[in-house]
Structures are given as structure tokens and as C-alpha cells.
Design a binder for these strands. Structure first.
Length: 420
RNA sequence: GUGGACGUAGCUCAGCUGGUAGAGCACCCGGUUGUGGUCCGGGAUGUCGCGGGUUCGAGCCCCGUCGUUCACCCCA
């Protein structure tokens, strides 16, 4: 009987060889600068109490209102697969009491996130993000540092065709003042029902409308940047000045809209040119009210999330993917069954010395095993046959030019250390 | 959730106005004893996404369905 094939759930991203090597490289490169800056790992659950997101991210957002994977567990609790990382970090910080220790708390995370959207180029239902959060410090210098760390991550991949956009959403006072005027302005426009509904939820979203006529209409709209309180304005100016001094180029985009409700003050986005419609490869900002909303003390914070899948696509688009495919150093070919156990123990020893060592298993002819060795990318092949064993040696073959020599088993490690 | 495109060997695809399928790459074997990459020879593989319909006959036409993909929306 033949079973029906089971496919992966719709829209998930997954990576096997050979792409997995590139994926791993991208993910580790993106987060490396944060580790160098003293951020420490926060390993979090992938599902949380649904209320964490509805309250933290905001009921009005698309993410919460229509993109969450929510389910009930056997105890009747409502749980949700995390659609983003910041709320979970905040919850864990509060719950573990980290916020009562030394500030700022600087953590990084890496993992899968879930949104039930229609899949598209660079948009998946399960996708990967790395991110950092710096909590408990209200200083424009750390805003600049967080942005610089993200930028460094992208730069270390060799990416060039991206830009950094920044703006400030100000404090509550700034946004309240702007909102009044913005709503007044929007009321003068002739809008369709869907757009009106969006405006009612969050009027800032209209700035993000891709239709040309909407962009024209919104060109005259009052900008939040012009309503910043003195403190917010001063802050934003400082952040820009730090970025200038760091030599990080950016564009101020007063029309930038972020999809999560908790953002305040400095916000930023990294946009790549070569990705089609889903061009954001990373983004973040300050979220000064979030901790309080989640039942903690009112510490401010700032962080970012970088899309690993999209960064990988960007690296492909720019042709900067290294041939950093995993390849072995050594490939042991045992000739005949009675040589297999020797191959196993020799391989174990060599691996202890740090050599990446594979064995030709199965009962292929030497010729076939050599082919396999060639494909593995190994630089040396060790042939173990009856004649070698009899003389206490192995045959060592250098694959680059086929040079072959006989090496005593005891001297193998030394010979390899010099050769590799 | 809304729209467009597509679904043929493991992969990338070809298949003319309907006559029961092909290429390249990859894979496997061989080119005399235990030696890879090049070359030469040989080989296996498809319920043509699935279900129905039209037809003497469908990979090609029609309907449905599932899936993929691109865009809207939204965002990493």
C-alpha cells in the first residue's frame, strides 16, 4: 500500500543542505555584533499567553487582529505562537526580576516567529528573526548603538543595497497633539470605506498607503515630526548626531509607519532594494510604555528584529553568498568489512584532534568511495586497506593534486596538522 | 482575506493547431587487479498535482479542488 505524501504546512520557510549552511552563516553573522557589544542570550518559549500579544503588541494591529496562530491547550488556556519577539522578552524580564538588577538589561534572541499571512516572496508563516533589546536606559546614545549594531550585522554579510530610514514617534504628548490635527486633516479627504476603517484604527497607517492618489493626498498631511515635544525633538537630534559621528548613513522618513502599537520615540527600518514587495530586512525602535502595560515597572527600552530569511534573500540578490558550504578535512576509506572498525576508531581520534572527518560507509568499490570523497570537498583521503594495516601505516592522499604518501599511524596527526 | 500566473522525471524545463512523453543537470554502473575531478559508453526514474467533464482519443480543451508563486493588504 502506498501512503500519501505529507507536505510542509503552507508558507513555512525551511532550509536543508546546501542552503542551510548559508542560512546559518547569515543568522550567526547578523547577531554577532550584538554579542560583541555585551548582549546576552535570552532563550524564550515560542508560545505565550495570548494576552501578552493582544495587550503588548496592540489589539488594533493587523498582527494581533488577524495574523496570530492562537489555540487552546488542554487546560483551556489561550496560547499563541509568538508573532514577534519584544513582548516575550519583556514578559520574561519582568517575571524573572531582571528589571530589579543592574540596568540596562541587554539581551539577544534568535528563533522562529509565526504569522498567519498569505505567503509571498520573503514572507512566510514561520520565519526567523534575530533581535536585541536594551531595557532600562533612556539615553539617545544607546538608541544609536542599537541601530549601529543592526547596521553592522548587515554590513558583515557584505550587503550594500539597503538603506536605513529613521524617524521619531515622540512621546505620548507629541503623538496626542499630532493626532488631533491629523484626524482633522483626514476628515477633509474623500476616502473609501476600507481606508476610513484603517484611519479609525491608526491614522498614521494612511501614510503607508501605496496608491499614488493616496500618497498625493497625504503629501499635505501634518507630520508627527513637526509635533515633537521639546524633549523628544532634542532626543531625536542627539540620536542623529551620534549616527553621523559613527558614519552611518540614514534618511529621515517622517512618513514611516510601524506595525506594532508599542513604538515610541526613535524608530527605524532597514530596507533592501532587491527583494520585491517585502523589502524590510529589519526594524525596531523604542517602546517606552510597554513594560508598564505588561504589569512591570515603567522601564523604557529599545530593540530591533532582523529578518534572517530576508537577509538571506538579500545576500543572494546581491551575490554575496560565500561558498561557505561545510566541507570536511578528511575522508577515510576502509577497504573491506574488517577495516571498518579501524576506520571508526581512527575517525574518532582524529575528530578529537579537531579534524572534520568522514568515513566512506557501505561497501562501495574504492573508485566509488573516491568519488564520494571528492564530492565531500575533503582535502585529504585516508585509505585503510590490508597492506596498510599490515605495515602500521595509512595511505594519505592529497586531493588537490593526487599526491599520495604512506604515513605511520602514530605520525598521522602530526602530518595532518602541518598539512591542514 | 482579494486578484494574476503556474503545477510534466530528484532539479531546471521542452512538449507544434488534442493522437497514451522528451532534453540538460544530478544519480547509478562500466571503460580488467586498490584510487576522485575531465572524457567515452550504458542505465533507472514519471498514476504529466488531484477529481470530474468534453472527445473515438487529453499533458494539451472545460469545471472543480489542492498546492506553488507574484502582487494587494501587512510586515521580518
Amino acid at each position: 500500500m502506498k501512503y500519501e505524501m505529507i507536505q510542509a504546512p503552507k508558507g513555512v520557510s525551511e532550509y536543508g543542505p546546501p542552503m542551510s549552511a548559508a542560512f546559518e552563516w547569515v543568522r550567526e553573522s547578523l547577531i554577532a555584533p550584538a554579542k560583541l557589544a555585551g548582549y546576552q542570550l535570552m532563550e524564550l518559549p515560542v508560545f505565550e499567553d495570548t494576552a501578552l500579544f493582544s495587550r503588548g503588541v496592540g489589539e488594533s494591529t493587523d498582527v494581533v487582529s488577524k495574523e496570530m496562530y492562537t489555540f487552546e491547550d488542554r487546560g483551556g488556556r489561550s496560547l499563541t505562537l509568538r508573532p514577534e519577539g519584544t513582548a516575550g522578552v519583556m514578559r520574561a524580564v519582568i517575571e524573572s526580576g531582571l528589571d530589579r538588577g543592574q540596568l540596562p538589561i541587554k539581551v539577544w534572541y534568535s528563533g522562529a516567529f509565526f504569522r498567519a499571512e498569505r505567503p509571498q516572496a520573503g514572507r512566510y508563516r514561520q520565519f526567523y528573526q534575530v533581535g536585541i533589546e536594551a531595557i532600562g536606559l533612556d539615553d539617545p546614545a544607546i538608541d544609536a548603538e542599537v541601530i549601529a549594531i543592526a547596521d553592522q550585522g548587515f554590513k558583515s554579510l557584505g550587503l550594500r543595497n539597503y538603506r536605513l530610514e529613521i524617524t521619531s514617534l515622540g512621546d505620548n504628548e507629541s503623538r496626542a497633539a499630532h493626532r488631533v490635527d491629523l484626524l482633522r486633516f483626514i476628515a477633509t479627504l474623500d476616502l473609501d470605506e476600507a481606508t476610513k476603517a484603517r484611519a479609525a484604527i491608526n491614522p498614521l497607517r494612511l501614510f503607508d498607503d501605496k496608491r499614488i492618489e493616496m500618497q498625493k493626498a497625504m503629501a499635505q498631511a501634518p507630520l508627527l515630526l513637526d509635533y515633537l515635544s521639546q524633549k523628544s525633538a532634542e532626543n531625536f537630534k542627539q540620536v542623529k548626531s551620534y549616527l553621523d559621528q559613527l558614519g552611518i548613513t540614514y534618511q529621515v522618513n517622517p512618513r514611516m509607519v510601524r506595525g506594532l502599537d508599542y513604538y515610541t520615540g526613535t524608530t527605524f527600518e532597514f530596507i533592501h532594494e532587491g527583494l520585491g514587495a517585502q523589502s524590510g530586512i529589519g526594524g525596531g525602535g523604542r517602546y517606552d510604555g510597554l513594560m508598564e502595560i505588561l504589569g512591570g515597572q515603567g522601564l523604557s527600552g529599545i530593540g530591533f528584529g532582523l529578518g534572517v530569511d530576508r537577509a538571506l534573500l538579500a545576500a543572494q540578490a546581491e551575490g554575496v553568498l560565500l561558498e561557505n558550504q561545510f566541507s570536511s578535512d578528511l575522508f577515510i576509506i576502509p577497504l573491506g568489512d574488517n577495516q571498518k572498525s579501524r576506520a571508526l576508531s581512527l575517525a574518532a581520534q582524529l575528530r578529537l584532534c579537531g579534524f572534520r572527518t568522514e568515513i566512506a560507509f557501505g561497501n562501495r568499490a574504492l573508485k566509488g568511495a573516491m568519488k564520494a570523497a571528492d564530492k565531500s570537498g575533503s582535502r585529504y583521503v585516508i585509505v585503510l586497506g590490508d597492506s596498510e594495516v599490515a605495515s602500521g601505516t595509512v595511505e594519505l592522499k592529497r586531493m588537490s593534486d593526487g599526491f599520495t604518501s604512506s604515513v605511520k599511524i602514530e605520525e598521522l596527526q602530526k602530518a595532518l596538522t602541518g598539512a591542514l
